[in-house]
């Protein structure tokens, strides 16, 4: 399914792949934990999948929340589509490690949750229904619209959470270890699905993960976060053609390079 480009998209396409998200000199401090990270500058371009890789507790989730406009940095600035970001942008969406569906809503209502909120862009009822249906179909849950979250398996619930993000037609999808609670087989399916749908939705992704293989299989670019306080230590552009499973040598070489850098970063 190919969604037609909106007029605004066409105008923006004419420019030279501008950054969806741009952050300069971000630091975050909190009483009790001190400075969690500092000097973080990064950009995510349109339709780009960027993986943010780092060890447990180095501040990835916090950085993600700052980038999403959910928390204020101590220093530095974030801009979204060229505008300074003060609060979460309506064209960004979140996916968490847990599906966090609302158990009192049917799947379709979960997917459409919040689209009618006061600060969301106005859209007609029909248009919203269409977006919800398209998102549900894209994640393979067609026919389960009336199911309650308690009736979905873990994998299906995470698909629904992905659909909830897609229904917002995000310019940028923030995903915080979205698949780390799933079994290996479901995780692999979900990684393929993520790449597939964000390409079809023309969305960029910032994917937080501590799984090196996930970063290599999914991302166009990998950022390594490490140190104390945390900072971006190294960056790789992944130009291995997809499906990347078909290029084991290139994948292995990149993997070794990342592992080597990790060993340095943790020193």
């Amino acid at each position: 399914m190919n969604r037609p480009l909106a007029e605004a998209d066409v105008i923006r396409c004419a420019e030279q792949t501008p950054a969806v998200l741009e952050a300069r000199g971000l630091s975050y401090a909190h009483a009790g934990i001190g400075t969690l990270f500092e000097g973080v500058s990064l950009a995510v371009r349109r339709r780009e999948i960027v993986a943010l890789l780092g060890s447990s507790g180095c501040g990835k989730s916090t950085l993600l929340r700052v980038l999403a406009g959910l928390e204020q940095p101590a220093t530095g600035s974030v801009s979204f589509l060229g505008e300074p970001l003060a609060s979460p942008h309506p064209r960004s969406a979140l996916v968490f490690q847990q599906p966090s569906l609302l158990p009192w809503l049917k799947l379709a209502d979960n997917v459409g949750f919040g689209l009618d909120f006061a600060h969301q862009p106005r859209a007609g009822r029909e248009a919203l229904q269409g977006r919800i249906a398209a998102a549900i179909e894209a994640v393979g849950l067609k026919g389960r619209e009336a199911a309650y979250p308690a009736q979905l398996s873990g994998g299906m619930a995470q698909r629904a959470a992905l659909a909830r993000a897609l229904a917002r037609e995000p310019e940028l999808l923030f995903a915080d270890e979205p698949f780390s609670a799933l079994d290996a087989i479901t995780r692999a399916e979900m990684q393929d699905l993520l790449v597939d749908v964000v390409h079809r939705w023309h969305s960029a992704v910032l994917l937080v993960t501590h799984d090196i293989d996930e970063a290599i299989l999914v991302a166009d670019r990998i950022l390594l976060m490490g140190g104390r306080p945390g900072h971006l230590a190294q960056e790789w552009t992944v130009d291995i053609p997809r499906p990347r499973e078909d290029h084991p040598e290139a994948v292995t070489a990149l993997r070794l390079s990342i592992l080597g850098a990790l060993r340095h970063a943790s020193l």
């Binding site: 959910l70 979460p88 979140l94 919040g114 909120f117 600060h119 969301q120």
Partner: peptide, 22 residues
């Protein structure tokens, strides 16, 4: 679930929406 509140905030939910819908 703290993620529900995060979700509401990511949707720029008003106080009223957060209270009544979440």
């Amino acid at each position: 679930d703290p993620n529900w509140l995060l979700l509401a905030r990511s949707l720029s939910a008003t106080r009223r929406e957060t209270l009544l819908r979440v």
